[in-house]
């Protein structure tokens, strides 16, 4: 009975989506706000990457909200996982190839992660993407040597201060008499590495926070794995 109603519901929803989709005019989006932003973004934010100017400029508080959502889910996961018993199980180490491959890849992935973060205002990418790559760099040694522990204290320090600095940069603009999270210190160097004022700093904060959050989440998952 339950599966039948589920099927009916899914069928109805699918039918509704099809009906809606048939009425949509694909390929011709109304560029009301979009064209405004395209015309003014480089002057108003100093970022050559228009996506970044939206993410960290026009809709910066959305980004702060998304950062908080990620933080809230990491904290919630910590609350749930923290109760389970920690067992230092005898997990087998990865083989020689996995271990040395992991050590070899670690610096390379760190470099790529930071490169993507630092160039977020110029090229596709940015804090979220770079942060995930940073976290992946920490996943490798954890997977190759399951007994190894990440330094939780320093990870939570990075996490806390990176998140706080995003807000503090926003408050700094208020101290200067501007609006909260208003882009500041915009230089006249569009397209250079040092440009777009505070936006790269915001992306650095995002990248560090995302990286530290995901890395500590994985290590917590490994540590609280149920005993065999």
């Amino acid at each position: 009975m339950g599966s039948l109603t589920g099927l009916l519901f899914a069928g109805g929803l699918g039918f509704m989506l099809l009906a809606v989709a048939s009425g949509l005019d694909f390929g011709a989006p109304p560029m009301l706000i979009g064209s405004e932003i395209q015309a003014h973004a480089p002057q108003q934010t100093g970022a050559a990457n228009i996506v970044t100017s939206v993410v960290l400029g026009y809709r910066a508080i959305d980004t702060l909200g998304e950062l908080s959502i990620l933080f809230a889910s990491a904290v919630s996961a910590g609350l749930v996982l923290g109760r389970r018993h920690t067992t230092a199980g005898t997990q087998t180490k990865g083989g020689f190839i996995l271990q040395s491959g992991g050590s070899l890849l670690f610096p390379l992935m760190m470099t790529i992660g930071f490169y993507i973060i630092f160039h977020g205002h110029l090229t596709p990418g940015g804090g979220f993407q770079g942060g995930v790559i940073l976290a992946a760099a920490f996943f490798l040694p954890l997977l190759a040597r399951p007994g190894a522990r990440l330094h939780h204290k320093s990870l939570s320090l990075i996490e806390g201060f990176a998140g706080a600095s995003f807000i503090l940069i926003g408050l700094f603009a208020m101290l200067e008499g501007k609006a909260f999270l208003q882009p500041m210190l915009i230089q006249d160097t569009l397209g250079q590495l040092v440009s777009a004022g505070t936006l790269p700093l915001l992306y650095l904060a995002v990248g560090l926070k995302v990286g530290a959050e995901l890395a500590s989440l994985l290590s917590r998952l490994i540590q609280t794995e149920a005993p065999q």
Binding site: I61, V75, G160, I167, L171, M174, F180
Partner: peptide
């Protein structure tokens, strides 16, 4: 009136820093 933003920003700041 602009201080009203702080009613959103400060709790977030506090939440990020509390574990530290």
């Amino acid at each position: 009136s602009t201080n009203l933003v702080l009613t959103i920003a400060l709790p977030l700041l506090g939440a990020f820093l509390l574990p530290v």
